[in-house]
Each structure stands twice: as C-alpha cells, then as structure tokens.
Amino acid sequence: MSYDATRQRVEHYFDRTATRAWERLTSDAPVSRIRETVRQGRDRMRARLLGALPRDLTGLRVLDAGCGTGLMTAELAQRGAEVVAVDISPALIGIAEARLDADLRDRVTFASGDMLSADLGAFDHVVAMDSLIYYTGRDIRDALGGLAARTRGSIVFTVAPRTPLLMTMWYAGKLFPRADRSPTMIPHAAQTLGRTIAPLPLRDLGRVTSGFYISQALEVTP
C-alpha cells in the first residue's frame, strides 16, 4: 500500500472511527484494564522521547508530527519550545486545542494535514510518536529524509518492533481484514530499518512494553 493510501486510511480511522476512544484514552477517564496498560505504555514512551531532547527548549522550533490529542505538544511547550503541532485528524486537533492551557497557547501552532508537508517549514527538533508505525521501511526512509532536510537537530520517533506478538497480529490482520479495523502496524527490526534509511544514522533509544502496547524508540540526527 502506498504512503498516500495508508495516510488516507489512518485519517479515516482517527477522524471518524476512533476519535472518542482516543479522547478517552488520553485523558484521566477510567478505561478497561487493557487500555490502561496502553495508556501507561504511551506515558512511558512519551517520557522516553522527551528525555532524548534538551531539557530547555526555549526559542527552539519543534514539530510534533502526529500530535493526536496534544499530550506531547503541551510538554514541549512547557519546556519553552515553539511547537508546530500537526495531525491528520481535524477532530483530534480540535481536542488538542481545547485541552491546551491558556498560558501555553502563544507557543503552539496547530495544523491539520500531512505531517511531512514542506509548507510547515524548518525545525530544530522533530518528535513523531507512534505516527510512523503504519508505514513500510521505504516510506519511513522517505519521510525521515524529507524531515532531515529541514531539521537542524534530532528526529525522535517510534516504530512497532518486530516481536512474535506483533508479527502474529500483523499476519492476522492481513489474513482477516475488516473495513472497520484500525490501520495495521508494520513491525520493523531496528537493524534492518537502519540499513534501509542509510546514510542517515539511526540510534536505538530503547523499547517500551506495557501489556498490548509495544513500541521502539529511535533517533536520527541529520
């Protein structure tokens, strides 16, 4: 499936099918035990990615690529960053805007659309948490190459790691497709992905596993 086709499927899922579920998952509202493990895993991964960035981001322009409901956006702004928060889902952008504290709003520019658009400009750092997990290695290579050309510092992002559980889920998704199924994650081995995106240098930032949430943190420094 091409990048554009995958992006359209992701947009449909998050803007129509899953908006309420993601709004609840990224809040303090009670959720099921399984979703609570996902929430905890995402909190740990967000902290891991933020830990790879400078503590003081004052005056730096940072792209939150695939910002969702804005949890990462708020933390970047609290560190002083000038944040461009972009998501493919206008519905999630609306939630993120509504949730952002008033004293941080002058540091954040929200945009709905393609997180890879050159129209967004240049950045000091890029964060892409769980927004590249649906794409092939070639698509990730092209995405990182385009971002690297406009980024002075690091690009931190996540992929779905190539584990037995995720590979089983991936094959099941291919064998039993459903129209309302969430977009299928494509697992990647960090070493293989590193060869695919070469000559960009890839650094492994570690894995977070929390119940059904399994994600690998990586960093590229142009």
Rank of each mutant, 00 (worst) to 15 (best):
D4P: 01
H12V: 06
F14K: 09
A21K: 10
L25C: 07
D28W: 06
D28I: 02
A29N: 07
I34Y: 00
T37W: 00
M45F: 04
R48Y: 06
R55P: 00
R61C: 04
D64H: 00
G66E: 14
G66W: 12
C67E: 14
G70T: 12
A74T: 11
E75F: 02
A77T: 08
A77F: 01
A81S: 11
V83H: 08
V83A: 07
A85T: 00
D87S: 08
I88R: 01
I93N: 13
G94W: 09
G94E: 14
T109S: 13
A118G: 09
F123T: 00
A128C: 15
M129D: 13
S131C: 11
Y134L: 05
A143L: 08
G145Q: 10
G146Q: 05
L147V: 01
A149Y: 05
T151G: 02
G153W: 01
S154F: 00
V156D: 10
T163W: 06
T168R: 15
Y171W: 13
G173L: 01
K174H: 13
L175F: 09
R178N: 03
D180S: 14
P183F: 06
M185G: 05
A189T: 01
A189Q: 05
A189P: 05
Q191R: 09
L193F: 04
R195Y: 08
I197M: 09
I197Y: 04
P201V: 00
L202I: 03
D204G: 04
T209I: 07
Q216Y: 02
L218F: 03
T221G: 01
